[in-house]
């Protein structure tokens, strides 16, 4: 797995850990935010990829700086590594959707300190910086949150924006491409994911309306590559037009 910086302003930094080596499980990105020596890990990944996520993490932060972890929803590729992180550092506070508490403890984390995020969202303070938990219910999970950092203008968007990319993929969607061609090529690999995994057009519209109010420089999905600059608006427009929930055909 590789580590790459997304944002840096003094002691405030964001990283992506991406392109995992284990291909038998779905490739997932892990994000890390550090502020004044304290860190938050976002969707820390599955049990099977824990060793490589941990090794990649140590390239960018000392693990003792981890104060909190964020779990966007209950899926195993997001939270099944929880008991291993807890074994390494029992002080980590786990911010999880309240609805999923009893489910997430099934991963073998009866003792872990879980902080429930209510349906309406909330926030967390890491190293003096406030991050917002933005509700993204039914995208795709019934209790689902994204994280917004207003200073860095980073939106961690969970499965929204996800794409299924081949091994060795880049961390960004054509950052230097101004024409939009790189976006068009990329989004073809995101289409099925959104059509099939996202169940609700109403939830999608509601999310787009709320997220459009935010200033976003980097939209960071849990699978695939980061949308930066103009690609953020391109993505929001594309998603707005897409019909989701294709598992049920009228």
């Amino acid at each position: 797995m590789k580590a790459a910086p997304i944002f840096e302003a003094g002691s405030h930094r964001w990283w992506i850990l991406y392109d995992q080596e284990e291909r038998r499980v779905i490739d997932a990105n892990v994000y890390v935010m550090e502020s004044n020596g304290q860190s938050l890990i976002l969707d820390p990944g599955g049990f099977e990829v824990f060793p490589q996520v941990f090794a990649a993490l140590v390239e960018v932060i000392p693990p003792s700086s981890l104060k909190a972890a964020f779990v966007s929803h209950q899926d195993p590729d997001i939270a099944s590594s929880l008991p291993l992180w807890h074994a390494c550092n029992a002080q980590i506070q786990w911010h999880i959707p309240k609805l999923w508490e009893g489910f997430i403890r099934h991963y073998g984390a009866l003792e872990a300190p879980l902080q429930n995020i209510p349906d309406e969202g909330g926030d967390v303070l890491i190293g003096g910086r406030r991050l917002e938990f933005i509700p993204a219910h039914y995208l795709h999970s019934s209790a689902n949150f994204h994280v917004y950092d207003p200073e860095a203008k980073v939106l961690f968007s969970g499965d929204v924006g996800a794409a299924l990319l081949p091994p060795g993929h880049d961390a960004w969607v054509g950052r230097r491409d101004r024409t939009g061609r790189a976006f068009d090529e990329h989004i073809a690999k995101a289409k099925y994911f959104h059509q099939r995994w996202m169940p609700s057009n109403a939830a999608k519209k509601d999310w787009i309306n709320r997220v459009s109010q935010l200033e976003i420089e980097h939209l960071c999905p849990q699978h695939g590559a980061i949308y930066s600059g103009e690609n953020v608006q391109r993505f929001l427009n594309w998603f707005d037009e897409l019909t989701v929930g294709m598992g049920i055909r009228p």
Partner: peptide, 24 residues
């Protein structure tokens, strides 16, 4: 240095992972 540190960390975390199986 980093080329050797990463495999060492991975090796120990894999052991931790497998210890969970034994414990379970």
């Amino acid at each position: 240095l980093q080329e050797t540190i990463a495999p060492l960390i991975q090796a120990h975390m894999r052991i931790l992972q497998h210890q969970r199986f034994v414990a379970s």
